[in-house]
């Protein structure tokens, strides 16, 4: 196998710098001891991290995002398990159309979905409510949950189920004791990917969240629209650290490549 030459390594270094720079700079500025945006060099301070506690909007938005992500991802996984089993095991009329429908939130611009949800929820009296947020988030994270559930349902060894049936297990027992435990890793990673996507979603949510139901990214976005100060950098730094921690756990548990690209390099 050929190696990368010096030119390739320089290109790679610049590329990685480009990818990491904006993320690192946020974390760096968050440690400023000053009252304004600056890059701390000799003095570091945690004052802007303590300052978050004095802004209850950020704290309550954080908890709301956490609950919203956990709840909508759990419901999305619940919806996607039977749908994945149907798509993976049956050939039926409208199978492709149905799969395309379930994957459509990935293709429809989130700004269009946000507008559609705003209009719809206002008409049916769910405008600006948490229930509305949950419904909207179930829809936009379902493709992620379905993709990973589907992958594990397709990879399932049917002969294990057949063996259970031949040993006298009922259909329900097979589902509960064989099928579900086998697709469980797929469900867990589907939930995790759905959760992160819900936790980060801003474009659609900004349309349907009201002052009492703002999520953390929406709160951050609206705050930045008014002014950029060190407080929002320390909030962002916290979000980055939490996401990176979740990322490393997911990479160890499931493999980030398998999660995002599909097949992993280990599967070859």
């Amino acid at each position: 196998m050929s190696r990368n030459g010096p030119f390739a390594l320089i290109f790679h270094t610049l590329f990685v710098t480009f990818m990491l720079a904006p993320i690192l700079v946020v974390c760096w500025v968050a440690f400023t001891p000053e009252g304004f945006l600056s890059f701390p060099t000799d003095r570091w301070s945690l004052r802007w991290f303590y300052a978050i506690a004095r802004y209850p909007e950020f704290v309550s938005a954080f908890w709301r995002s956490l609950w919203l992500g956990a709840l909508s991802s759990a419901i999305a996984v619940t919806f996607s398990v039977p749908a994945a089993l149907a798509i993976a095991r049956h050939r039926f009329r409208g199978r492709e159309a149905m799969t395309a429908l379930f994957m459509s939130p990935l293709m429809i611009p989130h700004v269009v979905l946000g507008i559609a949800f705003l209009r719809f929820f206002t008409e049916i009296g769910l405008g600006g409510t948490f229930v509305g947020l949950v419904l909207a988030h179930i829809v936009i994270v379902l493709p992620f949950a379905l993709r990973l559930t589907l992958a594990s349902a397709i990879g399932l060894d049917r002969s294990i189920e057949h063996a259970a049936v031949s040993l006298g297990a009922s259909e329900w027992t097979v589902l509960k004791r064989i099928t579900l435990p086998l697709v469980l890793p797929g469900l867990a990673s589907g939930w995790a990917l759905a959760f992160i996507n819900s936790f980060d979603e801003v474009t659609m949510t900004v349309f349907i969240a009201a002052p009492g139901t703002e999520t953390l990214p929406v709160r951050m976005f609206l705050y930045i629209q008014d002014n950029i100060d060190p407080l929002v950098t320390s909030v962002s730094a916290c979000v980055i650290v939490i996401t990176v921690a979740a990322l490393v756990v997911m990479d160890r548990a499931y493999g980030l490549e398998r999660l995002l690209v599909g097949r992993g390099a280990d599967g070859r």
Binding site: A21, P217, M220, I224, V239, I240, T243, V244
Partner: peptide, 29 residues
């Protein structure tokens, strides 16, 4: 290196787009 840098390059996908854009606003400043 392969796995590490793949994580470094694909990882930002999952980091809040607001936080990443804030980073650019700070860098451009």
């Amino acid at each position: 290196w392969r796995g590490l840098f793949l994580l470094v390059i694909l990882g930002p996908l999952l980091i809040s787009v607001v936080a990443r854009t804030l980073g650019w606003a700070l860098l451009f400043g």
